[in-house]
Amino acid sequence: MSETSGNGSDILCVLSSNEWDRSAEGLVGAGRLLSDKTGGKLIAVTLGEWQDSALKQLGARCHQVRVGQTQVSVSGGIESMLDYLVKLAEEIQPASILFGNGTVEEEISPRLAFRLGGSSIGDAQALTISNNRIQVTRSVYGGKATAVMELQKSPAVVWIRSRAFPPAGPLPQSGSFETTVIQETSPESIELLQHHEDASEGVSLEEATMIVSGGRGLGGPEPFEDLKALAATIGAEMAASRAACDAGWVPHSWQVGQTGKKVTPELYLAVAMSGSSQHMMGITDARNIAAVNTDPDAPIFKHCRFGIVEDYRNVIGPLTEKLKSRKK
């Protein structure tokens, strides 16, 4: 197969998170973007336990929903899941298989592509079809450049920044449902021994609408306590730059950037961080970026809507107090 799309080719969207959230909306939106162009069907594949209401939302927007019921947890049953997806893809022969962003999706995409003889790429910020081939726009060189990559072998397996894509509206006709029980086909060579969630109150970083983030300039773990107090005041989540995570000041699950989370809040308040291009790759889809930094020429300000040139030590405490009083 040398062409990845053509008239009537179908598009598969694999949804592994089990709710109808912004991420799922974006993923389906991206799928529709492609299926509208190919003229084929958009087929949603769900993994994990889905609520009926969520499936209904999905059905309204896709031509078909393949409900994959699985006994094993997503991360513990990769081999069986891959086998299921390979079988499904061989049956449907889609032009493209889309995943959302997550460590599991990142893991599966290339392996699925390999098994299907297709091509794969990740972190897609935009999708187009050109010369019947799928093209993916993504940041490269640590955010210094943008590349358009062409996937030359079909199917094109792509994991996307799902929140960066607009949601799709309902189709005139709801899609059909088909349920399959995912069997344990291959023995799992990898055994899950322990699962640990970092303590976090509130929503996940990716879903957060307000984020307070700290960088290397904080100099240690203690100032993060002040940032936490600030975040708590406005109901924001906490994030950090790679430097702060690598230093062991905060857990790695807080890391935002090229190799951390890609976030899409309404407000991203960056405190004492310079804003390396690698970090900016994680917040390109933030609606508003604001910064507190002593260096007016710090690159972070080039991406900000507003900012204050000041030592964070003089700002965070009073700011928290003022926000507290404004809330009342």
Binding site: A113, S130, K144, A145, T146, V148, E150, Q152, K302, R305
Partner: peptide, 17 residues
Amino acid sequence: SVRPVKLFVPEKESACE
């Protein structure tokens, strides 16, 4: 299986207040 067809330095506008 994948090849770049375009590569460019994105324009960044600075409008920080």
